[in-house]
Write a protein that binds this DNA or RNA. Sequence first.
DNA 1: TTAAAAATATAGAATTATTCTAATGTGGGT
DNA 2: ACCCACATTAGAATAATTCTATATTTTTAA
Lengths: 137, 137
Amino acid sequence: MNDKKDQIAISEILSKAGVNPTAQRIAVFKYVHNESDHPTPEQVKVAVDRVFPKISLATVYNTLNALVEAGLVKAVKLPNSGKVCYDANTAKHYHFIDEKQGLLLDLDLKDIKIDLNLSTQFEVKDVDVFIKGHYSG
Amino acid sequence: MNDKKDQIAISEILSKAGVNPTAQRIAVFKYVHNESDHPTPEQVKVAVDRVFPKISLATVYNTLNALVEAGLVKAVKLPNSGKVCYDANTAKHYHFIDEKQGLLLDLDLKDIKIDLNLSTQFEVKDVDVFIKGHYSG
DNA sequence: TTAAAAATATAGAATTATTCTAATGTGGGT
DNA sequence: ACCCACATTAGAATAATTCTATATTTTTAA
């Protein structure tokens, strides 16, 4: 049972990050981490509902927030639609957005070189980049 | 009266952009353009309320949308708070966000050099950059 | 083991931001 | 003056998210 093995592995990841690995949390993280690409909370709910006899949307939000807190996933708020997506890729990276197709793709750090030339008044903590355009994949 | 002169000038700007310069629209654009820095719709309403006997919030939204349509202002949806701000600076530029202080500052193009190295599948239309950190001004 | 304490999960209400709707108002042209 | 297209309006509707109060499960420790 691959599923069982997954669950144990994920359970450990959660524990290590200080998140109590309840069944719901395992299911949510498993979906975000292994089975999806930048899902919204709504999508997470729909997916987890198939495993669970109805998880509540509040729990999905609680869990996603807890996972973000713990640094296990990242929340990406899109600069246009304003929708939040959750990203299991916690390494620093950028995003490409194809609004027409509703696509959100990860871009590797090495694909974008950024040179900041700011005065010392600006203490930079993070850089978000969203490239918008059309993807023909 | 400087105010009157402003109004006429703004009226002309609106007309030229194909927006019928009604009193409400002039007041909204005047505030966004001359008297504020990245206001939210709510802030626009509060400000314009002082000039007008109560503009409706719907009109503020309609007007801001019309101004965006006409290319006279830009809407900036912040990648964290999700709030929309309106930006009278329609030239291409980037943003610095200090969440702690609730600051949103414009960054000039020349302050940030961006080198994209994407495969030809990516047809780039726009690049949004949000630098987050602390500003000590 | 068992009952109190703590942590989670839940449904549904509340909040916030925005858009829609349908009715009303306004100004320019005939 | 009268029409017509366009604006404005209040308030309802929608959507995303958070809060609240209750229920359930888990842990602790006697």
